[in-house]
Design a protein around this nucleic acid. Structure first.
Length: 265
DNA sequence: ATGGTCGCGTTGCGA
């Protein structure tokens, strides 16, 4: 069967539940993975998602910061969450689907402003998180052949995943130390970048535009921070992808837009 | 070169 998985950094699910409903009504993914829900689990807008047709909910919440969730039309066999870097942050959820496909949803730390782990603890945390992901991939690759990983990775890995490769080489999200580490994460499980499977690496492609631009669309200084990867065994099942740029122009938008993948599993 | 805008939960912090 073909399923559609979407990932979206929503930047407060309570504030933006209206555009979540709009997105689900218009695009009807089978599974929606959210990051930065910015709420505890008890205050998560469960009823809105159930009424929208997504009764299967996995939520890892935290007061004020971070937080991830998975809302699904199809049931989960299991739900797990890992504690990355022993920080106690709500940055990860894993579900097993009925066909035994594993789906991991990540919110990787943004990393602050200064790209130097010696002076910036937030950047140090980001690099440690990525190194743990390398270990995770190496440990799991032998036993997990059918898996999808999505999320806000807060790294724009390729030259044309940012509006100016040269100008962003020393900007957190596109520094070589981060892009090299993300490449290690990808290699550790031979992950296939599902979106770039369909869009050539020579084409500019973004999923995030800063709130600080006076006119985000005119300036178009975006970055591709949100990703969907699949294991090689699922590569032949890739059907299509979409980055919903229009969502950046919706009422009271998130600074990220939904990224969608349809695949046969 | 600088500062620009968000959301949460209080007026600072993280993005």
């Amino acid at each position: 069967m073909a399923i559609t998985i979407a990932t979206w950094n929503i930047n407060s699910v309570r504030l933006r539940i209206g555009i979540v409903e709009q997105f689900l009504a218009g695009h009807a993914p089978d599974i929606l993975c959210l990051q930065e829900i910015k709420t505890i689990e008890d205050a998560f807008p469960r009823n809105a998602l159930i009424e929208a047709g997504y009764p299967h909910l996995a939520i890892a919440g935290q007061k004020g910061y971070h937080g991830v969730a998975i809302a699904s039309k199809i049931p989960f066999k299991t739900v797990e969450k890992d504690d990355w870097c022993a920080m106690g942050d709500a940055r990860h959820l894993r579900v097993r689907l009925e066909n035994d496909v594993l789906l991991d949803n990540f919110y990787i730390p943004a990393g602050g402003d200064e790209p130097d782990p010696a002076v910036n603890p937030k950047f140090d945390h980001k690099l440690k998180f990525l190194r743990e992901m390398v270990q995770w991939g190496e440990a799991r690759r032998a036993q997990t052949k059918r898996a999808v990983v999505v999320g806000d990775f807060n790294v724009a890995p390729l030259e044309h995943d940012v509006w100016s490769h040269k100008k962003l080489l020393d900007v957190v999200s596109h520094t070589p130390i981060e892009t090299d580490l993300l490449a290690e994460v990808q290699a550790a499980h031979d992950w296939v970048d599902a979106v770039r499977h369909f869009v050539p690496a020579t084409e500019k492609l973004y999923s995030w535009w800063s709130y600080r631009a006076a006119d985000w669309a005119a300036a178009d200084k975006g970055r591709r921070l949100d990703h969907i990867w699949v294991t090689p065994d699922l590569k032949d099942g890739l059907v299509s992808t979409e980055i919903l740029r229009a969502a950046r122009g919706w009422d009271k938008p998130s600074d990220h837009v939904p990224v969608l993948l349809t695949l046969e599993v």
